[in-house]
């Protein structure tokens, strides 16, 4: 099997009143091409910190190594994560706070493209295509997030993550805030997307039954 992502000795610390706290200590794992890897653990065990570290949202402690599609990434250089984020994208837990309430769906989903210097017309075309893929219609382009249900908002979040055509998608508790029926819709959507786009998925969850349904391998974190 091809290893698309290899992490060795990932440590992350936070400073608190009592001194330095290790959120992650020497965590090593890999992700295989086309697989769904679940990350499980109690609250506070560091699940989301792994996700954040993979896309450079929290600083790495010394001693870690990061390999993406066979290439070594320097996690101690900010600009290396701009390469990472063209291949690794993230979708978040809370469908209410992860979308800017003052931006339209088009602005939200096209933002990553515009940030990378893609022309407005091309960005709009790509946005339409990706919305179709996640099950939203072109009529939704100029609506604001408040007009959508929780499940639809998660689709918008997935569209924003997928519009850059990443190879790896990190889903951080993306179904936790949803009704069971909507959760099933999103799980089916992830399954379809994974096959259509050849994605490799990291699926962070606390729900063992959901993980059993969607993932083959599980990483279990202990506090």
């Amino acid at each position: 099997m091809d290893k698309v992502l290899v992490v060795k000795n990932l440590s992350v610390t936070f400073r608190s009143k009592g001194g330095i706290v290790y959120a992650l200590k020497d965590v090593s794992f890999h992700l295989e091409k086309g697989e769904v890897l679940a990350i499980a653990g109690e609250s506070g065990s560091g699940k989301s910190t792994i996700a954040n570290a993979l896309v450079g949202l929290v600083p790495w402690e010394k001693g870690g190594t990061y390999e993406l599609f066979g290439e070594s990434i320097n996690p101690y250089q900010k600009k290396s994560f701009s390469i990472v984020r063209s291949k690794v994208q993230m979708a978040f837990q809370d469908p209410y706070s992860s979308l800017n309430p003052r931006c339209t769906v088009l602005e939200i989903v096209a933002a990553p493209l515009i940030a990378r210097g893609i022309s407005k017309s091309e960005a709009t075309a790509k946005t339409k295509k990706i919305l179709d893929l996640v099950g939203l219609s072109n009529a939704d382009l100029n609506k604001f997030p408040h007009a959508f249900s929780g499940g639809q908002r998660q689709r918008i979040g997935l569209a924003r993550a997928l519009v850059l055509e990443p190879k790896i998608l990190i889903c951080d508790e993306i179904t936790s805030a949803l009704d069971v029926s909507v959760q099933a819709q999103i799980l089916h959507l992830l399954d379809d997307l994974q096959r259509e786009l050849g994605l490799s998925l990291i699926f962070i969850s606390h729900d063992i039954a959901v993980m059993e349904i969607i993932a083959k391998r599980v990483i279990l974190l202990q506090t």
Binding site: V180, S181, V182, Q183, A184, Q185, L187, H188, D191, D207, I208, A209, V210, E212, I213, I214
Partner: peptide, 18 residues
């Protein structure tokens, strides 16, 4: 509604969204 609740032993095909 009960069918779409993920439980041990179910597969993705068992979860039929309403």
């Amino acid at each position: 509604l009960l069918d779409v609740v993920p439980t041990k032993g179910k597969t993705l095909a068992d979860l039929k969204p309403i």
